[in-house]
Each structure stands twice: as C-alpha cells, then as structure tokens.
Design a protein around this nucleic acid. Structure first.
Lengths: 143, 143
DNA sequence: TCTTATATTATAATTGTTATAATTAATTTT
DNA sequence: AAAATTAATTATAACAATTATAATATAAGA
C-alpha cells in the first residue's frame, strides 16, 4: 500500500534512474489531491530544488507517463494536468471555478465493445469528463 | 436539411454578422468530415481568401462555439479541433495515425445522474473519447 | 573509484492562441 | 441612398505552454 515505494520499484524495473527530482515529483503527485499542472509542480518544489528547471518537470512527467505511472489530462483550458494512476476513475469538472473531483464508476465496457463493433477499431481505452457546477458555485449562481 | 442555411439563420437570430469569411469557415466545417484544426481551416481557405488572418479563424470559431454551432475538441495533442454540432456523438480515435471517427451512442444519462448524486455537482454535460487502433493500423500492426 | 550512460540545467526555439490598434465592411439611422 | 455607427478583419505583436539543444552534473554498474 506504499504507492511511492511501488512507483519507485516500477521505475527501477524499467531501467529509469531514480533522481532526487524524480522522487520529489512523484511524491508530490501522490500526495496531491489536485491534479496539478507542470508549473504547479515546479513551483511547489522550488523550495526544495531552487535550481530545478521546468524542463525537468516536463521531461519526467513524460517519462512517468510512458512508464504508465501518470496520466496526462487535457481539458479545454491552457495547460495539461497530471494524475497519479491509481484505480480507474473519471473526472467531474466545475465549469465555473475549475475544480476537479474524482468520480468512481465501473468502466463503461459495453460502450467500448459497441464502439469496437461499429467502427472496426481495436479499442484500448476511453476517457470521459463530466461538466457542471460544483456545489459552491451552484449556491452562488446568479439568475 | 440544409445545415449551412440553418446555421446562418441562427447566426442572424443572435445578431452575429454574416461575413464571407464566416460563411466560408462554416461551409468548410459542415462539409469537412475531418474535425479540422484552426490552422487546417486557415490553409484550406487560403485560396479563396488570400488575405484572411489566422486570428479571424480563431475569432470566428470562438463565436460559433459561443452560439453553439461548433464544438471545440481538445485531445492530448497540440491543437484544438473543431466539430460542427449535429447530433450527439462520441469520438473514436486511433492512437497510431490519429484518425477520428464519429460514434453514435445514446447519451450516458445515468452516468451524469450518478455523478451528480455522488459529487453534488449540477451536471450540465459530459464528453467521452474512445482510444484504440483503427482497422488500417490494426492490420499493419507489428508484433 | 572510475567509467559510461543518462539526467539536469539554462537557454533558446517553437507552437498554438490571444490581444492590440488600425483599417475595412456591414448594418442602422437619417 | 448617404452618413453614421457598430462590428469584423487584418497585420502584427505578445503570450504561455511545451520542446529542443548543448553543456554540465550525477546515478548506477564494473
């Protein structure tokens, strides 16, 4: 149940070197509940690594993505967000304040199957986002 | 059944001026089956409008989005794609060649309801993309 | 510890998109 | 229909996110 240790092990297995920066980025991703952007990670680790380059954050997020530890989320807005991969879940996003809430739901297997059948694709996975107003913004809503 | 005429009418209704550029962009979007990027539209209309600025394309795509005629799609890759709004459908995307195929499926209402119930959001809509390999790429696949 | 391959840094380049200001064109008012 | 008004277009610059480059530093294995 130690996610960080497991993640580091899986890096080792794939021959990816474990550097202090990588350790810190992974740790931050695991402890963060907020789907951070690359820049947020960069700023959050500024204190610990005053010399770290933003390229390092991007490079390592790409490495983690390739290894399957991290998922890159692109919503409508400017920059990508990154999510440490745990169990399968979807995202519910507030269109007003941008808050992102995880939403567990058994995978939509039947949709994948139908899509495969109709289009002839060999379907691998899917993503879904649900948009609306969060409770805070709903109550403040102007009519 | 004339989509272009209907679209132009709905622009008129909302007080949006119909310019030759807007006409051409809309026409291109309707006839294009390819979910083009802003730049693709720009290049496609270069012959007809040698002086058109790329800003015009972006501006008008935003206008069309605000009026509800067009949907902006952001996938993992660099630039947004734009889709003329017709009936509700999802997209099946080839991870190898990038091909995008429309996939009709009755909206996942029950997922929206459950998400709303669990998170307390006032849910408005959702999006879903299905990823895999298209038939062409499946047959060429290397093992 | 030495070696070698890889990671990091600092910086520049690139790309998609948006902002600005001047010009042009569409609509409204006279 | 002409003048006035409003909005759209253009050309350009600015911006922000991301990626490429080259030099330096560091992790892991011999």
């Amino acid at each position: 149940m130690n996610q960080l240790k497991e993640a580091l092990d899986s890096l080792k297995e794939t021959g990816v070197r474990i550097t202090p920066q990588r350790h810190a980025i992974l740790e931050y991703l695991i402890n963060s509940m907020s789907h951070p952007t690359a820049d947020e990670i960069y700023k959050a680790l500024e204190g610990k690594f005053p010399n770290m380059s933003v390229a390092t954050v991007y490079n390592n997020l790409r490495v983690f993505r390739e290894v399957g530890l991290v998922k890159e989320l692109t919503f409508g807005d400017a920059s990508s967000r990154f999510d440490f991969v745990t169990t399968h879940h979807y995202h519910v996003i507030c269109e007003n304040c941008g808050k992102i809430v995880d939403f567990l739901y058994p995978g939509l297997d039947e949709v994948e199957h139908l899509a495969s059948h109709v289009t002839g694709f060999k379907v691998e996975n899917h993503r879904m986002e649900i948009y609306g107003l969060c409770p805070d913004c709903t109550s403040k809503e102007v009519h």
